[in-house]
Design a protein around this nucleic acid. Sequence first.
RNA 1: GGCGCCGUGGCCAAGUGGCAAGGCAAGGGUCUGCAAAAUCCUCACCGGCGGUCCGAAUCCGCCCGGCGCCUCCA
Length: 470
Amino acid sequence: MALKVYNTLSRQKEDFVTNQPGRVALYVCGPNLYDPCHVGHAFSYIVFDTAKRYLRFRGYQVRHVQNFTDIEDRIINKALEQKTTIQAIGEVYIQRFLDEMDALNIERADAYPRATGVIPQIIEITQTLIAKGFAYAMDGDVFFRVRQFAGYGRLSHRSLDEMQAGARIQVDERKADPMDFALWKASKPGEPAWDSPWGKGRPGWHIECSAMNWAEHGAQIDIHGGGHDVIFPHHENEIAQSEAFTGKAPFARYWMHNALLRLSGDTSAEDKMSRHAGNTLWIKDALARHGSDAIRLYLLSTHYRTPLAWIDADVDATARSLERWRTALKDAGATQAVAGDNALVQLAAQTHEKFITAMDDDFGTPQAIAALHDLAREINRARDGGATPAMLAPAQTTLRELASILGLTFAEKQAELLQAAPFIELLIATRRDLRAAKQYALADKIRQDLAQLGVVLEDTPQGTTWKAER
RNA sequence: GGCGCCGUGGCCAAGUGGCAAGGCAAGGGUCUGCAAAAUCCUCACCGGCGGUCCGAAUCCGCCCGGCGCCUCCA
């Protein structure tokens, strides 16, 4: 039994073997800092966060690097518009990004290099590429010579001759080949610029990731991740630059790309979520409506390589299913688990196996989730059947542990109401007395009034419990 | 024009050669003073046509419909 990962390069699931045993060098393409992030970004980062958690669960030590692209045309334009600097723009969006990642329970990366932080490396790589004949300078610009790199097109599976370069953009006449791309761009007046052997300028569009990988991970990494839309040209170009520069291949052993999220727009058609198309749902707004657990479980209910459309009503449905898991975990940890071999303990072990089998198959979260649903149901059934908390505990531990790999926290809404707890308990006690005296009208009024305040009472044979409305 | 993806019950979504996971919704039970929660039962032959095979949702061909990349993009 071994982990298999789908590799965009080979278009197949491959056995997962790392460069160094037990260690994974992971790089995930981060955001361009010209706007806030939308749930499409969240999807990608949740996918790789889950993969990372699972890899660690499987015993790997993972070093995760994610970039911030903080120099780019739109950022420059935005800075000019707002009469501020690209640094200031970057800071605002980086802080917001980190806050949102935290809110989504996405673990922080081990390093967040920025494009503007690796200018010396970018210049060094560019110089070396020129020296090796892979690049050429023209009037302060430097272009990568695509035809010089034999494997160009391998990742996106296209050949240079079949691509219609410049079909929709004007091709720079000075390029040796229309597909050649800029490593370094001469700066225009008023733009941020750095000194270079080719004059004042700034990095091109793809070089920063090669530089950051080299700086943080070295010549070769294990997994390079990103959205499906970034396969070409971004990742194709990264391979060309990095491998031409280091002379080592493969640059990345596994290329993982998540499918893209769509969003129903004003028109009937569902379109890819995209910032420049204005077809977006900001992470902030999604969180306000749904909460982290529901968002994660919803997005992970579909396999990461299958496109999905964000539908609010469906996220709500996922949130409802999550309630059953919360119920299953009720009072978990309240008692010491008993080492028994009841059916529930066996099922917990089976669930563990199923979860691993599912996740080993290219991170098969949908089936992993199904296994957890089965376990949650059995826990609830056992409780209904009179199982003691100690008997439930082992299965609850398993459920919580496996769910945490999906990044679910089951954060108690109760926490917000903690201060009110003694008073809620008092009302429950009063209501209990009223019910004992068959004063049901008053008892029901207490329950209704509490419900108005977001506190839900549930009567059980063991007494009345309360929870915050989700 | 090139390279790809998708079409499974009312909705979402697994499965990719051997009697169709899971969730939501719906209907009917159990429990309960009521309510809620939980749980039980019921609910599909897999876009269409043709082919391969003992056997196909699963492989091949064609068609219909939806979508992505080829340009910045998670």
